[in-house]
Write a protein that binds this DNA or RNA. Structure first.
Lengths: 340, 340
DNA sequence: CTTGACAGCCAAAACGTTTTGGCTTATAAT
DNA sequence: ATTATAAGCCAAAACGTTTTGGCTGTCAAG
């Protein structure tokens, strides 16, 4: 049925050893034999059995990704881009990318342990880090190779790619300050997540740098959805001294913020400025178009993928700590002059 | 370093055979031995090596998904739901889900062959079928086990889950006809895709059923994005006898259609009715909210996952052809009376 | 006392690769 | 004529598991 090295060996009257070595271009195989083996393998339709190879080589040739079903949605446009870029780098070199779903945080850590213990994967990819991430503590403790997309606050050493949210926030605040805004709000996800922490930190620092008072009541938390943005904006706008600008933790929230403003009979851009993070496709086509911080998703995925490959091969990662820079994209939601 | 059956065997003074059989609850192991083995395995932290097991059992215990990077975006909200539901069913029973990325259609078929040939996977998942799908022809010809989400037009027999787009379209047209619409347009993706074919077919049939003329000029094709919907709507509205209702092939396109209508100074719902397919979260929060055909994404993923598991195990699939029914969700974009 | 059944155990083979260490044979150097 | 070198090949072991077929001893039935 399925063709093995043994079949080729029988056909060409050589040993399995020689056939294997011929296919791997070892020097101790004569050119004639090599050619013969090659030809026969081709003709018989030989395909190496990766499972056998893995057993012998004691490597899984695979990378694990455990997706929290409760956490970052697969449908997040940016995450989709990151994932496909990383998957590309991983499969390009013949490794597999295994995707599992975890329903509860406890399951998640358990799954990491299983996957690595069972030798299903050589390295794992940790996404959506928290400030104090027990997954990372666990993996470090067990010496499991991994790469994280996202930092932690602890001073631990591990390969990690992240985006400089603080700086993105800084340029956003500067932009708003230059437009004359003095009361700026931030509505983001739970600050347990590292990126939200850095968004908040960048927010506070920037305000201070421009000598604005940091009003903690203008920093609110909600779900990372349109609904969450909508609700957060309603809360903010119903205060007796509402903000004149609202920065949302992601673009979907920003769209929700815009809806809330419009539902209150106010105009986005003139009455209240709005900005988001991400630059998803919708940001460009919303009404008004959305000012946002463009996150280099593809680049991030590509880098993570490359680092995961090195990690899985047990190679040293030359540059294990990368911080990517985002770009400010100014559109109508903060600058009405951009109305066509 | 890593604990194997041999280590346990040495420790408990039994053979590897007995240890293996003890752990698998074979009857020819005494209760005492079984308990001893269990305890020792636990204490030593034994985790079975799945690669060795796979080699012996001649199964990959894995399912392959090859995602066209050019085709259905991972970021499609519905696809994300389908994927996570399917991944859940697959990983729940200990199988792996392997994700690869294909950049060109040719690569894709090649990847299928490789993955199966190399014994990386036992079965594959074909998504986003075309009316005449060369992947399916190929897999059938080579007797590769697979499950498709989506039908083909040929009368081939293979396990497949799909959604009854024609019926969804039918209920949408009925809804619009009841509201008095006589000139209804459809803007969808390329009819090469099976689901678009059935959307169009359902569209034509429904019009005929309600004795409306089928104007082929009102059936247009564009990209499955907001931009595509926007452009399609502009084309349709610039005709000398424009439609009074536009059905879009998916919700993102429908949002684009709404933008185009609004940009022309018309009102969505009163001047032109709009409807979509999918019921993504945005549909509920857009202005106006979007009438749409809700597609049972989670259910679909779950079913596909279960069928893939059976397929990978070489089991007979009891019900290999399932057609799921969608539900019409009426909102403001077709029925202004629903404005709050 | 013999026979059969059964409980409990295990050696060995198998899955398909890669690697190790050596074995020939031929050629070149002494 | 011997010795060293190299080219070309291969048997066997290893990776960790499961399965096959058989072995030994005990006990009950005849």
């Amino acid at each position: 049925m399925t063709v093995t090295l043994k079949d080729i060996a029988r056909q060409v009257n050589r040993s399995v050893t020689t056939v294997s070595r011929a296919l791997h271009d070892y020097a101790d195989v004569s050119p004639e034999t090599r050619a013969l083996v090659r030809r026969t393998a081709e003709q018989l339709g030989y395909v190496p059995n990766v499972v056998a190879r893995r057993l012998q080589k004691q490597r899984a040739d695979a990378i694990g990704l455990i997706l929290p079903s409760y956490g970052p949605r697969l449908s997040d446009p940016l995450f989709g881009d990151i994932l496909s870029a990383a998957a590309d780098e991983i499969t390009r070199v013949g490794l597999d990318l295994l995707v599992s779903i975890a329903h509860r945080p406890e399951d998640e850590v358990e799954l990491y342990y299983q996957r690595v213990g069972e030798r299903r994967v050589d390295s794992v990819w940790v996404v959506h880090t928290r400030c104090h991430d027990m997954r990372i503590a666990y993996l470090l403790e067990r010496h499991v190779p991994f790469v994280a997309s996202g930092r932690v606050l602890e001073d631990w050493f591990f390969p990690c790619v992240d985006i400089d949210y603080a700086r993105g926030m800084h340029s956003l605040v500067l932009h708003l300050v230059q437009l004359g805004h003095r009361r700026i709000a931030f509505a983001g996800e739970s600050p347990d997540f590292t990126f939200v922490h850095y968004q908040r930190e960048g927010f506070r620092h920037a305000l201070q740098e421009y000598s604005l008072e940091v009003d903690e009541d203008l920093i609110v938390e909600n779900n990372p959805t349109q609904r969450g943005g909508y609700d957060a904006a309603q809360t903010l706008l119903s205060r007796r001294d509402p903000p004149t600008a609202i920065i949302a933790g992601n673009d979907l929230m920003a769209l929700g913020v815009m809806s809330a403003i419009q539902d209150q009979g106010l105009e986005v851009g003139s009455d209240v400025a709005v900005a988001g993070f991400g630059d998803i496709p919708l940001a460009e086509t919303s009404h008004p178009t959305l000012t946002t911080v463009r996150l280099p998703a593809h680049q991030m995925g590509k880098l993570v993928g490359q680092m995961l490959v090195m990690s899985a091969r047990g190679q040293e990662i030359p540059n294990p700590y990368v911080l990517l820079q985002p770009a400010l994209i100014i559109r109508q939601s903060t600058d009405l002059g951009l109305w066509l």
